[in-house]
C-alpha cells in the first residue's frame, strides 16, 4: 500500500468518525420502521424469491436463505 493510500484511508477514517456524533436522544427518527433495513421481513422473503427465480444475480442483504429449484 502506497503512502498516498495510507493518507487517504486515514483521512476517510477521520471523516467517518466525525459522522458518528449522533446522540441517543437524537435517534427519534432513526427508530422509525421505514428507517430500518429489515422493516418488513415477510415482504423481503417473498420479493427476494421472485427476483431469484427471474434473474442471475441475487443476495447481498444477508446469509442463510434456503435455495430452491427455481433457478
Amino acid at each position: 500500500m502506497s503512502s498516498t493510500h495510507i493518507v487517504l484511508v486515514g483521512a476517510a477514517a477521520l471523516l467517518l468518525s466525525a459522522c458518528s456524533t449522533v446522540k441517543p436522544w437524537q435517534k427519534q427518527y432513526l427508530s422509525k420502521p421505514e428507517m430500518g433495513f429489515s422493516a418488513d421481513p415477510g415482504d423481503s422473503r417473498i420479493t427476494e424469491h421472485i427476483y431469484t427465480s427471474r434473474e442471475a444475480a441475487s443476495g447481498g442483504s444477508g446469509v442463510g436463505g434456503g435455495g430452491c429449484g427455481c433457478n
Binding site: C19, L30, F37, G59, S61, V63
Partner: peptide, 18 residues
Amino acid sequence: VTQVISPVAILQSNISYK
C-alpha cells in the same frame, strides 16, 4: 457495516462472497 450518518440518515454496506 451499518453507520448512523446523522439523526435522519443511515447507511449500510455489505460485501458477500458465495
